[in-house]
Design a protein around this nucleic acid. Structure first.
Length: 500
DNA sequence: AAAAAAG
């Protein structure tokens, strides 16, 4: 086990790291920090939650020359929240040295950012679009850059930012600078980017075993689409998570879930890309401060967000992309704590679940749909917990006199039982209907024929056989016959085309 | 197909 004290850090950084309570380095930190200190370019293959930010943050901050007041370090991240988080982390580690990191991202008033830039940050943590905007306006100059970090490079590729990244890297005019690239996977496009813009990089990989999510219990529940919301409510009641993230597959879905959860009395807020940046920032803040217990999110919050105390992740919708599953559940079980991830799966999605299991190399445990009785039991347990907690806190001296008088007339067991009954929540049955069901369904013109559509969907995996059928259909058409059968075959053929 | 990011 490597410790931070083994790295020969500058006094300032050592002090900050100790103050943050860091002692032992994670594997990615242990491997990449010494290499980065030699000044070489570095590719680190590691997922989020492995301590990546500190792994690149330490060399980045050490490289800052306090006598130079230009921007010397730049971190590029795929989402705005990530840029903010990286900046916060760097400000913590760099505080003693006096290094100022400014987050730069879209959706925020640009004039305000330009004003902040006048405070001369040494490091910028940015999303690609807004960074390019500033470079064009010449409000950010790249001629003093000595360290460039590409965070979550593969995700930036997936999101179509690769051209932006190339444009930014091409703008960096300082003769010699160090480039650190971090990515969970290494697709060819990222390799070629590295070849073009990096100088003989060293390659560091955190083994798959260390990136898996060992302190997260993973379960799934098979449910019908229209049961999902009630099942989620039951789970929330039974498990009463400290902080939970609920992932939905669309922005509309997230809005509806928030509305439904609020109707049922939960403290929930949503986050997705169509909300104003001010709202997004606010939700993250409230959730971090535990003013809000449940954050409902699209995959915007799947990656990298490090919020301590997230005890539960609920996949209200199974993620389409198995990679995304790993990232989503990685929001819990952080910093050595236990986490629980529950995925709701409709019967037709069970195969998809298996493909996720292949990636994680871990079987999810199937749980039954929790019963109404389980909910009642959960509520009772919660009442007991809150009562005993108050007893432990011993903060009720003003009631003791009344209690004694009461006990003269009422049996003590009756009294405690009554108190528990009073404390036990009634399960909320407010009707909530989600309209955004939008399963993977054909967009054929005859959407009203629900029954046959379902059948076709189930057959879709055998689509290859249908192709043979279609040539038969073609022959029929040549004969000028348009039977009902023919039409449905046609639908299927169209579908197998679109599914490619 | 959806999500993310520049207005």
């Amino acid at each position: 086990m490597k410790k931070f004290s083994d790295f020969n850090l500058s006094k300032e950084l050592e002090k900050a790291i100790t103050a943050m309570g860091f002692e032992e380095a994670t594997p990615i930190q242990a491997e990449s920090i010494p290499i980065a200190f030699t000044g070489k370019d570095l590719i680190g293959q590691a997922q989020t939650g492995t301590g990546k930010t500190t792994a690149f943050g330490i060399p980045l901050l050490e490289n800052v020359d306090m006598s130079n007041n230009g921007i010397q370090g730049i971190v590029i991240a795929p989402t705005r929240e990530l840029a903010v988080q990286v900046a916060e982390e760097l400000n913590k580690i760099g505080s003693v040295k006096g290094v100022f990191t400014l987050p730069i991202y879209g959706g925020q008033e640009i004039s305000r950012q330009i004003r902040s830039l006048k405070k001369r940050p040494q490091i910028i943590a940015a999303t690609p679009g807004r960074l390019i905007d500033h470079i064009r306006r010449k409000t950010i100059k790249l001629d003093n850059i000595n360290t460039v970090v590409l965070d979550e490079a593969d995700e930036m590729l997936n999101m179509g930012f690769i051209e932006d990244i190339e444009a930014i890297l091409a703008e960096i005019t300082s003769d010699s600078h160090q480039t650190l690239l971090f990515s969970a996977t290494m697709p060819p496009r990222i390799r070629s980017l590295a070849e073009r813009f990096m100088d003989n990089p060293e390659y560091v990989k955190v083994k798959a075993k260390e990136m898996t999510v060992k302190n997260i219990d993973q379960t799934y529940i098979e449910v019908r689409e229209n049961q999902k919301f009630d099942v989620l409510n039951r789970l929330l009641d039974i498990q009463s998570p400290e902080l939970a993230i609920v992932f939905g597959r669309t922005k509309k879905r997230v809005d509806e879930l928030v509305e439904g959860l609020k109707k049922r009395g939960y403290s929930a807020e949503g986050i997705h890309g169509d909300l104003s940046q001010a709202k997004r920032d606010q939700v993250i803040r409230q959730f971090k401060e535990q003013m809000v217990d449940i954050m409902v999110a699209t995959d915007v919050a799947a990656r990298g967000l490090d919020i301590s105390g997230v005890s539960h992740v609920y996949n209200f919708d199974i993620p389409q992309d198995p990679e995304s599953y790993v990232h989503r559940i990685g929001r819990t079980g952080r910093a050595g704590k236990k986490g629980l991830a529950v995925t709701l799966v409709t019967p037709r999605e069970v195969n998809h679940l298996k493909s996720i299991e292949q990636l994680t190399k871990k079987k999810m445990v199937k749980e039954p749909i929790p019963s109404y009785e389980d909910v009642i039991a959960g509520h009772k347990q919660e009442a007991i917990n809150s009562l005993t907690k108050i007893v432990e806190e011993n903060s009720y001296s003003e009631y003791k006199g009344i209690a004694e008088t009461l006990l003269n007339d009422v049996d003590s067991i009756d009294l405690v039982a009554a108190a528990l009954k009073l404390l036990t929540k009634e399960p909320d049955q407010t009707p909530v209907k989600l309209t955004d069901i939008a399963p993977l369904r054909s967009k054929g013109p005859r959407n009203d024929r629900g029954g046959s559509r379902g059948r076709n969907d189930r057959r879709r995996p055998g689509g290859r056989n249908d192709r043979g059928g279609r040539s038969g259909g073609d022959r029929d058409r040549n004969r000028g016959e348009r039977s009902r059968n023919d039409r449905s075959r046609n639908d299927r053929a169209r579908k197998s085309k679109t599914s490619k």
